[in-house]
Amino acid sequence: MSIFDNIFHYIGQLYTDRLPYFPTNIRASLMIILFCVIAAIEIYIYILFKRIVKMREEKQIKYWKEHIGNVLANIIVYDETDNTAEIISHFYPRFKKIPLGNKIVNQIVVNEILLYRKNFTGKTAEVLSQLYRKLNLDKKTRKKIANRNWDIKIEGIREANEMEIVELASAIIKYTDDENALLRMEAQAAYIKLSAREPFHFLDRARERILDWHQVVLFEIITKNKKLTIPSFSKWLYSPNDTVVMLCLKLIEHFTQFDAEEELKRLLRHHNPKIVKKSVEIIGKLELANAESFMFEIYFDQSEEIKLEILNAFGRISSGQYADFLSSRIYSTDIKIKKEALYAIKRDPDNGKNKLREIYNQTTPENQALIKHVLDDRIKQE
């Protein structure tokens, strides 16, 4: 009998024949030890099982990813002289042999098609889109969008966006004002692309904030999409949502929408100083001379930051109507205000530099030094 047989025999006798004769505390300790040993063995077996399953899964993923990638690669190099229907009928049987009922394989097919669709245009993109529908993958995308979990919803929305499944726009619109910021952003970005008639309808119902980084994303999508029909964004400057107003102001600036003049003048008295500042900035860039009087009216009630923007706007417009006002600003106690006023005067193409020289002969040594600085064309305005 080996040493291991002796050990197992002893343990067996310990827990069967001798256990009842031990004191209570020793019996309890032995039972705890037995429980811990059994639990440790079960844990090791579970870990081993999970590793085997994971290895098989990784092997399966590697095989199917390579196989599906090869099929899709063949679509790309296929003769483009054939029409789309012929190409699909040629490759569809190959995809039908793939076990799409398997969740892992199904997701690999979706991911690979999305990857190729994102990187190719023309007939290849058209074939991939139609193949996606023919394999009923769009139905799974719809189910994902209706899922309770927000991360799965996002996955579905991204799929619909990439594959341009326009009929899902009506399902996506309800998430464009969701409490979850990530879901809201994905839904808004997708809706702009998928809604043919009213791509900006989500702005009408937006109550949640459009975060700054989200505004950057939407701005990129809107300005780079050549298929979009750009509306007059001034209609949303009445929105009670300040972030909607701010986004529309940026778009008005980018698309130089002069028809927003009246709304821009109204926003000069907005409760949000960021909106006031942006409105002044746009008035200056669009050189809206009719808005000068409105800026003058609010000037003395504003912060230094907005005052500087107003002076800059006066300089951009350079109508000459507020030349005396600009001249008076050089006697401000704020050095930044002085410099901005002097630069605004200089911007007058007809008489700016002459006006500064005239002021130079009548003002203080401190102001004369500033005027010299402003008149020096080698020094760029800060």
Rank of each mutant, 00 (worst) to 15 (best):
R148C: 03
R142D: 04
R209Y: 00
M246P: 03
T243A: 08
K139D: 15
L182W: 07
F258C: 02
A181S: 09
K144F: 06
T141Y: 00
N149A: 01
A190Q: 10
R158H: 11
P240G: 04
E253G: 01
M246S: 05
V245L: 09
I154E: 14
V217N: 11
E179M: 07
N149W: 03
M163K: 13
Q257H: 04
E208A: 00
K226F: 02
F202Q: 08
R148S: 04
F258Y: 14
M163Q: 14
K134F: 00
H254C: 02
A189T: 09
E253L: 03
E220H: 13
W150R: 15
D242P: 13
M163T: 12
E198Q: 13
R207S: 13
Y191C: 14
L135S: 11
H254D: 06
F233S: 08
W236T: 06
E159I: 03
I221V: 05
S232R: 03
N180W: 01
I230F: 01
Y238M: 15
H201A: 11
R209G: 03
L137V: 04
C248M: 08
A181V: 03
L247D: 12
E208K: 08
A206W: 00
I230S: 02
R184I: 12
D259F: 00
A187I: 00
D204L: 08
D178P: 10
L228N: 07
W150K: 15
I222S: 06
Q257F: 00
K140E: 14
K235T: 12
W150M: 15
P199M: 11
W150A: 05
S234N: 06
Y191E: 13
K140L: 08
S234K: 06
T176M: 09
D151I: 02
Q188Y: 02
A187K: 11
A190M: 10
S232H: 09
L183A: 05
K226V: 04
P231G: 05
A187D: 09
H201D: 13
L211Y: 00
F202M: 07
L135Y: 10
N161T: 10
Q215K: 14
T176C: 15
K250T: 10
R207L: 10
